[in-house]
Each structure stands twice: as C-alpha cells, then as structure tokens.
Computed example of a mutant assay.
Amino acid sequence: MPEKLLCASSDVSETTAKICELEGVEIGVIRHKGTVVAYRNVCPHQGGPVCEGLKMPKVCVEFDEERRPLKQSFDTDEMHFVCPWHGWEFKIETGEALGDPKIRLNRYKVIERDENIYVEV
C-alpha cells in the first residue's frame, strides 16, 4: 500500500490530536503510550469531528451492594476521545466505541520514520 506523509513527528503530542488533511479527508493523529495512532476525524454516530473532542481517562464507578454509586475514579491507562457533538466515547488505543465495541473509528496504519509520520492509504 502507498504511504502518504501526514506531518512531522514533533507535531504529534500525548495531549491533543493533530488534525491533518490528506486528499480532502481529515485525519486525527495522536501519540498514545508512545505509539502514534491515526483515525479519520468522523464520528460514526452523526459525523462529528471526533478527534477534536476531549481526551480523557476512563471513568470508573464503584457501587455498593444495591448498585448505588459510591465514588468515581479515573483510569489513566485507558484514554478516550469524547466526540464534541454528542459525547460518544471511543478508546484511543483501539477506536472502539464504549457503548458498543462493534462500532469503531476508521483507523489508519501509521508509519513513523525519519522524524515524520506517514499513513498507508
């Protein structure tokens, strides 16, 4: 498959996605746990700019024996994109929707080489 240059490696951070355009398609690129991932910047729910949403850790809720919430905490090992249009959440590592893991963001294969980031198209 042909590789296309997206951006310089130094443009990509662990905190926010870099939005790149490639042949009229927006692609969100982010560094996660030392690896670069890239997704088409389109939410499968209603087409929102998913990669431009908040990046936040998984929210964990502890319940009592009657299923009443006791406390919340965050699991920073599992980070999510939250679509800014309707709040759908997706695992950054896999692109899976939290509500239904069969729904996924469109992911690109990423190659990081010579201080640049490429995707296979």
Rank of each mutant, 00 (worst) to 15 (best):
G99H: 09
V36H: 02
V110C: 03
R104V: 10
E112K: 08
T35I: 13
R104F: 01
H86I: 04
H80D: 00
M79D: 06
K71G: 04
R31Y: 04
F74Q: 15
Y108P: 06
E65V: 13
Y39L: 01
C83F: 00
R31V: 07
E96G: 03
H45V: 01
H45Q: 09
W85A: 00
K109T: 15
F90G: 01
V82S: 11
H80S: 02
D100C: 12
I92E: 08
W85G: 00
L105H: 06
M79L: 14
L98T: 12
Y108A: 07
A38P: 09
G99A: 11
V37L: 12
E52I: 02
W85D: 02
P101H: 07
G95Q: 08
G34N: 03
A97L: 11
R68W: 09
D100W: 04
V82G: 01
E66Q: 14
V37W: 05
L98R: 11
P84S: 02
P49G: 00
C83P: 00
V82H: 01
T94I: 06
H32I: 12
W88E: 02
P49F: 00
F90N: 08
E65T: 12
E62D: 12
S73P: 00
T76F: 15
Q46Y: 11
R67E: 15
R40G: 03
W85Y: 14
I111Q: 06
W85F: 13
C43W: 07
K71S: 15
V42G: 00
A97E: 12
H32D: 10
G95D: 07
G34K: 04
K91L: 15
F74D: 09
K91Q: 14
K71C: 13
T94N: 07
D77M: 08
E78C: 10
I111F: 12
L54P: 09
V61S: 08
W88F: 11
L98K: 11
C43N: 09
R31F: 06
